[in-house]
Structure formats: structure tokens, C-alpha cells
């Protein structure tokens, strides 16, 4: 088990990282700050998938559905001026995403692992095609644009890239704090039990359906929050953000980073985003690079970077649980 990155040491490292993330940006160029902003949001997105996939073992191909539902909710509310209040809009978005997950979960959580994969793909297609065709609601293939930065009702405006970055940093800290708490909680250990041996969990008396169901809703809300904030970041939302390509990217980031540890999603999102940015600056062959890189990770580093680091520090057969 990946314990090193869950322990109190990790908390200290995380706090240190957060401090650097807060203090460094004013000295960085604009492109770096916007890059970091997107990394923070993708990290939340990846963490949401990790909760479902890495901790509970549910292989989901539709994570973008929740990102996109959150995103389109904000998009629709903001672009039409229906709700101008940022806090209210975010709250509505969270409720909508949770509701969608609650409904989908009833269908989707009952099935076996293999079918879960397939049915999530199918549901993803339906949402994507709805986003693509319902032009009057979602803007169709063009999506919704000209969504401006929110007014927080505070003395600081977030229209500028630096202040917006700090807003996202706050959300990032909150989301990862919740992620950390869930993962270390008894509920989190039940999820791991389900991933490791669901049959035995049921034989021990656990009604595994409920845990998977709640996990799905929590995962969806995290993804939805990230997707909602991304709309304010990008001032745009389109059907691609609901599609399986988008879900696939979350999967790639989750795998590169490694599942089972809190830092994994952050490492994965950062690595992927940095790589894409810099490789794309020099060559058009980013898809080739990521395709090969991804295959290499799948074959040789299945537990991702976080897993690799933990393996280096682990002694034979013993974990290092901090209880």
C-alpha cells in the first residue's frame, strides 16, 4: 500500500508545497501562472477519478460527464445572466452534479467491473451527443463562450490571471483537504477493501453497493467543482469537455501520477500538463509522444510516479503505517 504519501509527513510536504505555490507566482511570467492554474484544476479532476478508480477499483470512462455537467451548469447560468452570484452558481452546480451522479449511480453501480467500463462509456456518449446537439441549451458544437470572471464580492477582482490563480489555489487546497480526509477515513479504507476483494467485504457484512454509490457521488462533485471553475478560467465550455477524450486524459493523468496516494493526482496532472505544454511548443507530434509515453507507463510503471517513489522507499514486506 502506498503509505508514505498518506502519512503525516505527507501533510507537512503538502503544506510546504502549498506555501511555495502561494508565494512564488508573483515572480513568475503570465504563461506559467495560467499553466499552474490549469494544473491545479486538472489535479482536482484527476483526484476525483482516483477516488473512484484508484481507491475503489471502478474503472470509469465517463469522468468528463461530471466535469462537463458542472461546467455547463456554470456556463448556462453565467452566459445568460441567470445567476450572477458566484457562490450561488457554484452551489447550484454542485447540487446539479450530485443529483446527476445520484441518478446515474443507481444504474451504474450495480453492475460488474467490466460492464461498469462499458456502460460509463455509453453514458458518456449520450451526454456528449446531447451537449453537441442541444444547441439552444448548450450552444451545440460551438459551446458557450464569453463567460466572464466572477465577482466574488470581495475587495479583489479575479479578472486578472494572478488573482484568479489564488482563487483556484484556495479551492484546490479545500478540495485536496477533503480528498485527504476521505482517503484516510474508515470510509476510505472500506473503499480500498472493496477494490482489493469485494467478495470478502460482502461476506464480512458490508453492503458494498452503498459505499460505491457514495464514492461515485463524492467523485462526481469533485470533478464538477473542477469543471465549473475551469469555465471561469477559460471563459468557455464546449462539448469536448464532456467527451471520452477528456475522460481519457484524466485517466492518463491518474495513471502517470499513480493511484492510492494523495499526491498522485497532483504529480500526474502536473507532469502531463507540463509535458504537453513544452512538447507542443517544439513539435506537432504530441499525440505520438503521449501515446508512446503512456504505453510505457502502462507497461513498466503501472503504479505511476507516486507508486515508483514509494517502492523505492519501502522495505521488504512491511508497510509503514502511521496509525
Amino acid at each position: 500500500m502506498i503509505r508514505l504519501l498518506l502519512s503525516k509527513q505527507a501533510l507537512v510536504i503538502f503544506a510546504a508545497g502549498l506555501f511555495i505555490a502561494a508565494v512564488l507566482p508573483p515572480f513568475l511570467p503570465q504563461f506559467a501562472i495560467t499553466l499552474l492554474t490549469s494544473i491545479l484544476l486538472f489535479a482536482i479532476f484527476t483526484a476525483s477519478l482516483d477516488l473512484l478508480m484508484g481507491h475503489t477499483g471502478l474503472i470509469s470512462l465517463f469522468q468528463a460527464v461530471f466535469w462537463g455537467t458542472g461546467g455547463y451548469t456554470i456556463g448556462i447560468l453565467a452566459s445568460r445572466g441567470i445567476v450572477q452570484n458566484f457562490y450561488l452558481a457554484m452551489l447550484i452546480s454542485i447540487i446539479v452534479v450530485a443529483a446527476v451522479a445520484a441518478i446515474l449511480g443507481l444504474i451504474v453501480v450495480r453492475v460488474t467491473r467490466l460492464y461498469f467500463m462499458i456502460i460509463t462509456f455509453a453514458i458518456g456518449q449520450i451526454f456528449w451527443s446531447f451537449a453537441y446537439t442541444a444547441t439552444s441549451i448548450t450552444g451545440g458544437a460551438d459551446g458557450l463562450a464569453r463567460i466572464s470572471r466572477p465577482d466574488l464580492g470581495l475587495p479583489w477582482s479575479v479578472t486578472g490571471y494572478l488573482n484568479f490563480y489564488y482563487l483556484i489555489l484556495v479551492f484546490f487546497a479545500i478540495c485536496f483537504y477533503f480528498f485527504y480526509r476521505i482517503v484516510r477515513s474508515p470510509f476510505g479504507s472500506v473503499l480500498v477493501g472493496i477494490k482489493t476483494n469485494e467478495h470478502r467485504m460482502r461476506a464480512l457484512g458490508y453492503n458494498t453497493f452503498w459505499y460505491k454509490y457514495i464514492c461515485l457521488i463524492l467523485s462526481a462533485v469533485l470533478a464538477g467543482v473542477a469543471g465549473s471553475l475551469y469555465v471561469y478560467f477559460d471563459n468557455y465550455i464546449g462539448p469536448a469537455e464532456v467527451g471520452w477524450g477528456w475522460s481519457a486524459e484524466a485517466t492518463i493523468m491518474a495513471l502517470i501520477g499513480g493511484s492510492g496516494a494523495v499526491a498522485g493526482p497532483i504529480i500526474g496532472a502536473a507532469t502531463y500538463t507540463f509535458l504537453r505544454y513544452f512538447v507542443s511548443a517544439y513539435t506537432l507530434h504530441w499525440p505520438l509522444a503521449i501515446g508512446i509515453g503512456f504505453i510505457l507507463v502502462v507497461l513498466y510503471f503501472p503504479r505511476g510516479i507516486a507508486g515508483f517513489i514509494t517502492d523505492l522507499t519501502r522495505r521488504n514486506g512491511r508497510g509503514s503505517v502511521k496509525d
Partner: peptide, 23 residues
């Protein structure tokens, strides 16, 4: 190489999609 690991195999095929697309 990934015999039995279904998720890994699916992920691997995603990598192939990107490579073919680019080539």
C-alpha cells in the same frame, strides 16, 4: 504482457489511438 489486467489493456489501446492518429 498485460495478460488479465483489463484496465491496463484498455489504457494501452488508448495509447495506440494517439499514436496512429499522429502517424
Amino acid at each position: 504482457r498485460l495478460h488479465g489486467e483489463h484496465l491496463q489493456q484498455v489504457l494501452l489501446t488508448i495509447g495506440i489511438v494517439y499514436i496512429v492518429m499522429d502517424l
